[in-house]
Simulated scan of single mutants.
Amino acid sequence: MHLPTVLVTGFEPFDGADVNPSGEIARRLGELGHPDCHLVAEVLPVSFARAPQLLAAALDAHRPDILLMLGLAENRHALTPERVALNLADAAIPDNDGDQPTDAPLEPHGPPARFTDHPVKHIAAAIDAAGIPAQVSLTAGSYVCNAVLYTALGIAEQRGDARKHSAEQRGEHGKHSADASTAPTDTTAGTTAEHGEHSEHGEHARHPRLSAGFIHVPATPQLGGDPRFTLDELERGIRIAITTILDEPA
């Protein structure tokens, strides 16, 4: 039985803190796994410049079916699945590299916003039903958490477009002889990868369909947060989120 691959990411500590529960949860999940998926984990730097690049590298390395990113929102009192990533970098505090962009686009020619395809309402309801406060959040803010979500959703869109294009080339959507007869012939058979193209197996192996989303976690008691939000409870909530995403119809 083929198990889907789930990549969970969290962040390193920032703003002078010694810990970041999002990174700790990701590490735990990577070590302990999940019975319904092949689970891998990465901890990202709190850096506008480096985090999106390392996330993209992790996606290429692990080729997940599902990406669930975690971040810390100290002032929130619930686990909050995010609906929208904004094309905006506007940092109230510097990141760990000392960068503090103001009113800057993440991608100058990108769309104003990108929406997750994770079932955020179902995720929040399932976590809340288990006795852990959860609610849907409209946006991931404008700090590094938002930057990696915006990047991930852009990559997911590109992979979806690549799969659609590959399927159309094979005639899966009714495009047959017309497209094939008018397409230029490549006389260097077997070397298409050198020209930026991929075979059916190569394209689909390197770029599986990607479902991406983000959950902010509240501060743990170690950071002065609500005593209910122990690392164990937050981990339990994220496990429920993963199960909910896995159970959602494709």
Rank of each mutant, 00 (worst) to 15 (best):
G213W: 04
S166G: 05
I155P: 04
L234Y: 06
E31P: 00
G16V: 12
L59A: 02
H118I: 04
L88Y: 03
A17N: 14
H204R: 13
V148H: 09
T116E: 06
T9W: 03
L106H: 04
E24F: 01
L223I: 08
I127K: 05
Q169C: 05
T5P: 02
S211Q: 14
F14L: 10
L106P: 12
I123L: 10
E235N: 09
A152W: 02
L39M: 08
P218T: 15
G202E: 14
L231D: 10
V43D: 08
R170H: 15
T9R: 07
L67D: 02
G196I: 13
I245A: 02
V148E: 12
P227L: 11
G110K: 13
V43A: 03
T182S: 14
S177D: 12
V40K: 06
P101H: 13
G154I: 12
P218F: 09
P45K: 11
A140K: 07
P52V: 15
A57D: 14
T80A: 07
L149M: 15
P105M: 10
A89P: 00
V144L: 12
M1R: 14
T244L: 08
G237E: 06
H201R: 15
D117F: 03
A156M: 07
G154F: 13
I25F: 10
P64A: 12
T151S: 11
A49G: 05
I245C: 01
I242E: 03
E168K: 06
A167P: 01
G190N: 09
K175Y: 14
G23R: 13
V136A: 07
D18E: 13
I238W: 11
D65L: 03
I215Q: 07
A167E: 15
G30S: 05
A162G: 07
I25E: 04
C37P: 00
A73G: 03
V148Q: 09
L210K: 07
D36A: 12
G30W: 09
A180S: 15
L44M: 10
F229V: 05
V40R: 15
T244F: 08
I242Q: 00
G30T: 10
A78V: 06
A156Y: 06
A183M: 13
E82F: 04
G237S: 09
D128P: 00
A183D: 11
E203T: 00
P81C: 11
V19Y: 05
I240N: 04
R159G: 03
S177P: 01
L231Q: 08
P105E: 11
L59E: 01
S181L: 14
A58E: 03
T220S: 10
R239M: 04
Q158V: 04
N146C: 10
A51C: 08
G196R: 14
G160L: 09
P112L: 15
E157N: 05
S166P: 00
T243M: 00
R170T: 00
V40W: 01
